[in-house]
Amino acid sequence: MSAFGSVFMPEMAISWFDGSQWSNAEVVSSDSIQLHPGAHVLHYSSSCFEGLKAFRHEDGSVKIFRMDRNIARLQQSSDILALPEFAPEQLEQMIVDIVTRFADQVPEAPGSMYIRPTHIGTEPAIGKAAVPSLTSCLYVLLSPVGDYFTGGDKALRLLLDDEGMRCSPHMGVVKSGGNYASALQPIMKARAEYQADQVLFCPGGDVQETGAANFLLIDGDEIITKALDSTFLHGVTRDSILTLARDMGMTVSERQLTVEELLERSARPGCEAALSGTAAVLTAVGTFIYKGKEYEVGNGGIGETTLLLRRALNDIQWGRAEDKHSWLTSL
């Protein structure tokens, strides 16, 4: 079994900005990008990306999930990184065209086609450390993926870090490779020293997110999660889950959550915690590790509400439930 996201379709959609206009989108070999060694992205990390999925329904049709939100977020990331502006219609057409081209390769449930739009600064200028790239490249990769939980669905162990942070506070909202790179060493250290699966960054005691996912605390019929600001990524899956929770009559509290309150609430019977993201939708958290001590979340296993919300979203994505919020785009 290949690792998640390590298999790619042989072709991708690509467009280049030359400083004044975008080229017509083309379909080229997925390994055909040529960059100057002095390209801005290689030195000053002018790079952002998205992750979304296309799903095959039982009638054979293929639908793309929440493409508009992912495109809008890539536009926002590009703007914050001062990358050249692109029209949302441009990227939408690139995504639809390349997914249509490989529609017969979209796996059946529980698999899907992972879609990775990427925007990078390409200007060859190593003297532009404080100046944006005038040229850029926008491309869309496809990766067929299987069931995220093939290796076994288990509750995760999270190390609570109230001293470090995932990335610079004003950059948290950007889906940029640099943010993931900055979290790697703390995550590797947590795995080696505490056998933790991830680090939940809580700078100054403020519970934010892990290295690659948003965090949700589920206490009875209430979901508590940090209110949107620039310090963390505004996840599309997070938004989808919260929307479905409201539809089910749950209370959604987007507010500050301290480590102290998190540990107090998580000890209550029936309390659940979960990470939300494109790959796994919702992954249960069973244990917190804080200052050398372990704290069990609820019963330490996978909670019923976590499973209920994950299934509700999956059912919409695979066409088993009504798409009441118009989240799916047909090819």
Rank of each mutant, 00 (worst) to 15 (best):
T150Y: 09
G152S: 08
K154Q: 12
L156W: 07
R157W: 08
R157L: 01
R157P: 05
D161N: 15
D162Y: 03
E163D: 11
M165D: 04
S168K: 01
S168R: 05
P169K: 02
P169I: 05
P169Q: 12
P169W: 02
P169M: 10
M171D: 05
V173N: 03
V174N: 03
G177C: 07
G177E: 10
G177F: 01
N179M: 12
Y180G: 13
A181G: 15
A181Y: 03
L184G: 01
Q185A: 04
Q185G: 00
P186E: 07
P186Y: 02
P186K: 08
I187S: 13
I187N: 11
M188G: 00
K189A: 15
R191K: 15
A192N: 14
E193M: 12
Y194G: 02
Y194A: 12
Y194C: 11
Q195P: 06
Q198A: 10
V199L: 13
L200A: 10
F201S: 07
P203Q: 06
G204E: 03
G204F: 11
G204R: 09
G205C: 12
D206G: 00
V207C: 08
V207E: 06
V207Q: 02
V207D: 06
E209L: 10
T210I: 10
G211A: 12
G211L: 06
A213L: 05
N214M: 10
F215G: 05
F215I: 05
L217F: 09
L217T: 01
L217I: 06
I218P: 00
D219S: 09
D221S: 13
E222R: 14
E222G: 00
I223C: 01
I224M: 14
T225W: 00
K226C: 04
A227M: 08
A227V: 04
L228K: 13
L228N: 07
L228H: 09
S230P: 00
T231F: 01
F232K: 02
H234Q: 14
H234R: 00
H234P: 04
V236M: 08
T237K: 01
T237W: 01
T237P: 07
R238K: 12
R238S: 11
R238A: 05
I241T: 04
L242R: 08
T243M: 07
L244R: 15
A245I: 05
R246C: 13
M248H: 08
M248T: 03
G249A: 14
M250Y: 11
M250Q: 09
T251Y: 03
S253T: 12
S253F: 02
S253I: 05
S253D: 04
E254N: 03
E254L: 02
Q256P: 02
Q256K: 02
Q256W: 01
Q256H: 06
V259E: 11
E261C: 00
L263V: 01
L263T: 03
L263E: 12
E264Q: 11
E264I: 12
S266C: 10
A267P: 06
